[in-house]
Design a protein around this nucleic acid. Structure first.
Lengths: 193, 193
DNA sequence: CAGTATGTCTAAACCCTTTAGTCTTGTCAA
DNA sequence: TTGACAAGACTAAAGGGTTTAGACATACTG
């Protein structure tokens, strides 16, 4: 056999994403991806640095989608409305791409993997930007970005993993939780007007 | 060889917890646990239903610790103060037992595994109880429990996985995020006085 | 004291990851 | 045109984890 299959890195990312979103991140093994692509497992090592490299590829792929979703979500709006749109876009992404969403943790540090770090930080920067535009001072904005991210991440992960036992409407819980956080952020902005 | 080792389920839970908290949940394999206990891997199947059973054991073990930590945290206090104490106890647990903390997801449903479900729901019920005692009507309390749980879970998981890139004080972010949420909960309580 | 249940073990299959080395094929320069 | 090289596939094989099956020793129980 020669080099006929012609696999590209993007083919690998897409196949892995398909598997991860369908069967869970753990199902996106090197052998499953190779099977999906019609090649043998060791051949993947010509494109990707082992299992860890595959996870990295997934995280980058996912971050790109999130960033473009976020950009579309805030297009033309700002302030509290933009934050709500970002929150909903985040939930939409997590629900459409559960496998990619799980690939975001553990996160790299800026030193351990600058490329991946940058790709993953971009959506967070976008959120921070909205808050800065609301007039919130930088340091406070960073704390508030963390609060919002934590709320969103926790909610989405609990939702995805059946962490919420009670039989009441989850959509409403999400709306209320997010609104509550956004109101607090709006109040912080007003305090600095 | 006969039956001399005399392994108990609690020995397995403790060994697995030690490994998971030290080297991560994924390191708590059947073979690592068997090694730690001085027996062979297949012998574990006499006590535990495979890898999944081991995870289940960890989650129950962790839930029991969380519940007792939570009970100690709220002892003698109530209202906003109790919520703050619970939040700090949660963070303390996650930092002391990162492996056990990760074992909580994915969560079972009440039908799929009633025993584990009950064990894991107990700490959440305790939080709900504090809110009900504050005078918040049941349905709203359930939404607010979700909001607080989401915030805490998201924060702790992001913190544990280096998800927060920015170089500002994480303790302060935690305090602010939690206070912000508790203020909203207090306001909801006041609305129903 | 005999029989049974318990709990350990060994053996073996299966799957996934990873390394090493082979071989085919496309490309590019002489 | 052709020969060398690089890319990218492959096979072979090792190593580790999970899991089942079956053997065997030890402790209880009547």
């Amino acid at each position: 056999m020669g080099r006929k299959a012609g696999i590209e890195k993007s083919d690998i990312a897409q196949a892995a994403a398909r598997i991860a979103d369908r069967d869970g991140l753990d199902a996106a093994t090197l052998s499953a991806v190779a099977r999906e692509l019609g090649i043998k497992t060791p051949s993947l090592y010509n494109h990707v640095d082992g299992l860890e490299g595959l996870r990295r590829l997934l995280a980058i792929h996912g971050s790109e989608i999130v960033l473009s979703d976020f950009k579309a979500a805030v297009d033309g709006i700002e302030g509290a409305e933009a934050l709500k749109a970002l929150s909903e876009a985040d939930r939409e992404f997590a629900s459409r791409h559960p496998g990619l969403y799980s690939s975001f943790l553990p996160a790299p540090t800026e030193e351990s993997d600058p490329e991946l770090y940058t790709a993953m930080a971009a959506p967070a920067f976008l959120v921070a930007h909205v808050m800065l535009d609301m007039g919130i001072p930088q340091e406070e904005a960073l704390h508030l970005v963390r609060a919002l991210r934590a709320l969103l991440h926790g909610f989405l992960e609990l939702e995805a993993n059946r962490g919420f036992g009670m039989p009441i409407d989850i959509d409403e819980s999400f709306d209320r939780s997010v609104d509550l956080m956004i109101e607090a952020i709006t109040a912080a902005a007003a305090r600095h007007k």
